[in-house]
Every structure is written in C-alpha cells, then in structure tokens.
Computed example of a mutant assay.
Amino acid sequence: MFRGFDSEGFSLIKNEVLCNGNKGTCSLKQLLEHILSNPMELLSRNQSCEFSRFCEKKYQDLIHPTMESSIFSNLDRNEAVLNSWRSLSEFYESFVCMASSIWTLHKLAFSFEPVVEIFQVERGLDFSMVYMEDVSKRDNLPGETKVKVGFTVVPGFKIGRTVIQSQIKVPVLVAVLILKKVPIV
C-alpha cells in the first residue's frame, strides 16, 4: 500500500504536474477536501479523481483476481457483476477505508516543508531502538544476541530531524531461540 508514497502523485501519474504553485498548500487543500468527504462517496462522485485511481491501482496490485473470485465465488463471473460488487461489497468498502487512511497520511506528509520521508526496514537487518519498535511483545533479556527484523508492520517516518519509529515484527522462531539462549546457526 505504501509503494510510491515518497512521490507527490503516489507514482500514479508519470510526468504530470499535479499542483500549480506551492506543493504543500496544494496537498493540504486536497487533504482537507478528502477528510471532509466519505471515501465511498468520493469514488462514486468522481471515478477519475486521483483517489479513485489510487484505490483502483492498489486494489489491482494487492488483490489477485483468483483471490477476488474465491472471496466472491457465489457471484457470476460476468464482468458487469464483478464490477458492480465493488459499489456494494463490505470487503471493498473496508479496502477503500484503509486506502483512504493511507491517502490522507500521504497528503498530510506532502503538506509539510520539507516533505515527510517514509522508511521501511528490510528483513534480516539488526534491530535498532532508534528507528524501530518491536511489536512482538517479547521480553528482552540481558546479554541477548542481536535481534533481526522479520518484517515491517508499519513503516517509519522522518519529519525534519524527528524520527517516528517503524514498527517491526521479529521472527517468532528467532525470538524463541533467543529467549532459550540457543545459538542461531
């Protein structure tokens, strides 16, 4: 969902000027317009708006047609039926609400000067308390070996010189081995 977050148009539009004038002011205006509306109403009102294109792109990137058809196996495979479920489905509405939260965060990030930077932590890197928060809810033992990142749960952000930690998950197997003081091979 966060792929393209660091570009003004969320990497949806190539070589297009999205905003005349101050980018921060434009993003703030778009943010206010967005939060004052219901995301589903926005989609039904203007299917060619940036938010609509964002939702469609992310949905296509994340929800494989096979998964979609298995979720909605009771629907006829007719294209018109599959397209119409999106306006009625609780699943799609939940997806749009999640997309709306990320879109809102993106517009907020681009309303700052300098723009808020996003970072994700790669799997296998050493844990750092400065940039990361472990959401595994495990106890740290004194003298414990270096903990490795399993995956990023929530990306981190840098606002000027302030860091908002990335939330990461430590692999369960590694956490169990560390707690038992078993050497990792």
Rank of each mutant, 00 (worst) to 15 (best):
residue 114 P to H: 05
residue 113 E to A: 09
residue 152 T to I: 01
residue 182 V to P: 04
residue 47 Q to F: 10
residue 150 G to R: 04
residue 72 F to W: 05
residue 63 I to N: 01
residue 133 E to Y: 08
residue 155 P to K: 01
residue 95 F to C: 01
residue 103 W to S: 00
residue 49 C to K: 03
residue 71 I to V: 12
residue 74 N to A: 11
residue 61 D to Q: 14
residue 122 E to S: 15
residue 81 V to K: 09
residue 114 P to A: 06
residue 51 F to Q: 02
residue 74 N to E: 12
residue 94 S to F: 07
residue 184 I to Y: 12
residue 39 P to A: 04
residue 166 S to N: 04
residue 166 S to I: 03
residue 58 K to P: 02
residue 117 E to T: 12
residue 87 S to P: 00
residue 151 F to E: 08
residue 20 N to I: 12
residue 182 V to M: 14
residue 75 L to E: 07
residue 20 N to M: 09
residue 26 C to I: 03
residue 42 L to C: 08
residue 86 R to M: 14
residue 90 E to A: 12
residue 129 M to G: 08
residue 166 S to G: 06
residue 168 I to M: 00
residue 36 L to D: 13
residue 79 E to V: 14
residue 118 I to F: 09
residue 103 W to E: 01
residue 44 S to G: 06
residue 93 E to C: 09
residue 107 K to F: 03
residue 111 S to W: 01
residue 162 T to Q: 13
residue 49 C to A: 08
residue 83 N to K: 14
residue 109 A to C: 14
residue 38 N to K: 06
residue 110 F to A: 01
residue 16 E to W: 09
residue 39 P to I: 00
residue 166 S to V: 04
residue 96 V to K: 08
residue 57 K to E: 13
residue 43 L to S: 01
residue 61 D to R: 04
residue 78 N to M: 07
residue 165 Q to F: 00
residue 56 E to H: 09
residue 171 P to S: 02
residue 69 S to V: 05
residue 39 P to G: 02
residue 34 H to V: 02
residue 51 F to W: 05
residue 77 R to T: 10
residue 182 V to S: 13
residue 116 V to A: 05
residue 96 V to M: 06
residue 182 V to Q: 12
residue 157 F to Q: 03
residue 154 V to M: 11
residue 166 S to M: 02
residue 171 P to V: 00
residue 63 I to H: 02
residue 152 T to R: 06
residue 62 L to W: 06
residue 17 V to R: 10
residue 70 S to I: 08
residue 138 R to F: 08
residue 28 L to S: 11
residue 21 G to V: 06
residue 173 L to Q: 08
residue 14 K to M: 07
residue 128 S to G: 01
residue 122 E to W: 05
residue 11 S to G: 07
residue 76 D to E: 09
residue 120 Q to F: 08
residue 119 F to D: 04
residue 21 G to P: 07
residue 31 L to W: 15
residue 171 P to W: 03
residue 107 K to C: 11
residue 180 K to L: 15
residue 135 V to N: 04
residue 120 Q to A: 10
residue 54 F to Y: 13
residue 118 I to G: 03
residue 133 E to N: 10
residue 149 V to W: 05
residue 110 F to D: 00
residue 180 K to C: 14
residue 163 V to N: 07
residue 110 F to L: 02
residue 52 S to H: 03
residue 89 S to G: 10
residue 8 E to K: 10
residue 83 N to T: 05
residue 143 G to T: 00
residue 185 V to N: 15
residue 73 S to G: 06
residue 157 F to K: 03
residue 167 Q to I: 05
residue 110 F to G: 00
residue 47 Q to V: 06
residue 172 V to R: 11
residue 46 N to E: 13
residue 170 V to E: 13
residue 55 C to N: 00
residue 64 H to R: 09
residue 30 Q to R: 15
residue 33 E to F: 15
residue 67 M to T: 13
residue 18 L to H: 08
residue 27 S to A: 15
residue 111 S to L: 01
residue 94 S to Y: 06
residue 66 T to H: 10
residue 11 S to N: 14
residue 104 T to D: 05
